[in-house]
Design a protein around this nucleic acid. Structure first.
Lengths: 249, 249
DNA sequence: TACATTAGCGTAAAATATACGATAATTAAG
DNA sequence: CTTAATTATCGTATATTTTACGCTAATGTA
């Protein structure tokens, strides 16, 4: 006879991405608790069990505020990781002790978050014992957190192309090269400077600030800001009739 | 003090789409149980609680096999619906009684599935008391199932453009017009016949069968099949270097 | 002062998307 | 048997977008 599962605990784990101007980074946390069997110093994604009467989104926001000190940052669900064996018995032991709960199974919901890497947030996260690691250098994480991170990264790649998430990772004002480097870092492609510039400008979503770089040993670049209202106008004017469009499977 | 939620029940709900040659349909199930307070005859999506040691994907597959008689159909996770108030107390009562469980909260995972509407499946689903309803005509469903369906539909729309899911909804052999009607039905746009044809053929993913329609009161159209291996080749040959591509936010 | 470096402008060719003309094959209607 | 109605299928010209790449400008450094 089949029995219905009623005792699943639900957690959220967040892949938090930042961009330092050249490389894409992820926020990782050192695991605090160890046993004889369990390696003491592996890294994990920021995460938490959900609390009573808490939305998943709410739990993820809470985790982010705890680990970065920030509210209102870009946050989006990716996938659910529900394999009954996704955490080993030993890991389960750790989880139950760490969170002070008793459960046979933990299902986790992946989120990805995008933050602007300011000095403020870097200091805060360092103080909390977290680290910003190049995503390319991450080859092992606690439990199935590498799967969760990889999944988030692939979602980020898709979103970069079809929605203006790039600007969530850049400072309020940024140069064209910063923007281009971000695309290169995330998508892993070469991009011709001149064509990139043309493409971006043709959308009209960048507003020039009139300000320029200082103390750089080359022609100083202008700073731009993201024109969100112009973007919305664009978005609405599309999707009319008669078009087949860009599917290009 | 915060308390960790350990007693969430998890369910899956599936938005199952089919295409009848003209309209996009969704599979809906009549609710069986009623009380004085609860309207007796509303419709819901096929769904289930997850069983012990069952993956979510596994639960969704099981639900689909139960409701359509089919295995190995296209199935993909959409979002999670976790609002603590997503089901009212009365609904909660119904759920607990219906499933024979006791829980304070049910989190559900949305899936969307694509099936080929053959006579076989239509007969099976009718026998099971389910119905295929035009998605445009669905304006109310049990609990938050309309949200789940809408979410699935918006995922389907995106996927139609960037991956060849269309062919999951069509018979093995189909005419160009069937394919075009599917795009029109799902995306809600007008498409010029001649340009659509050119676009599709230029990808090389359709294989002509040499067979033609019979007994139609117009020039009979050729049947094509989807060339999945050719599609994979295309997919791999893309994503090389030096391209910016089609982002067209 | 020359040089290395990146910003920023422009132009031509190639590829893709769009609009629409014309003919072909079938059944239905007269 | 002829004509009409309907949809398939091919084609062509124009507009738009993408790609490849040449050139000059402005800055700090050697």
């Amino acid at each position: 006879m089949t029995t219905v599962e009623t005792s699943s605990a639900i957690s959220v784990d967040c892949a938090v991405f930042g961009f330092d101007g050249t490389k894409l980074k992820a926020l990782l946390i050192k695991r605090k608790y160890t046993t004889d069997d369990l390696s003491a110093d592996d890294l994990k994604l920021p995460g938490s069990m959900i609390l009573e009467n808490e939305t998943l989104q709410g739990a993820a926001s809470r985790v982010l505020e705890e680990s970065t000190g920030l509210r209102d940052i870009f946050l989006k669900q990716t996938s659910i990781f529900s394999d009954p064996d996704r955490v080993s018995d030993k890991e389960m032991d750790w989880i139950c002790r760490y969170h002070g709960i008793k459960t046979r199974r933990v299902v986790t919901v992946g989120y990805y978050a995008l933050v602007k890497l300011t000095d403020g947030i870097i200091n805060y996260t360092l103080k909390m014992g977290a680290r910003w690691v190049d995503v390319d250098d991450i080859c092992h994480l606690a439990m199935d957190h590498l799967d969760i991170l990889s999944d988030a990264l692939s979602v980020l790649r898709k979103e970069m192309i079809y929605s203006p998430v790039a600007f969530e990772l850049l400072p309020k004002r940024f140069t064209m090269r910063q923007l281009q480097n971000l695309f290169i870092a995330v998508l892993g492609v070469e991009i011709d400077d001149r064509n990139f510039r043309k493409k971006i400008f043709s959308t009209g979503i960048l507003k020039p600030t009139g300000e320029k770089e200082k103390n750089v040993s080359h022609k100083p670049a202008e700073y731009y800001t993201f024109n969100r209202s112009e973007f919305r106008k664009l978005e609405n004017s599309r999707n009319k009739l008669g078009f087949i469009g860009n599917w290009s499977y």
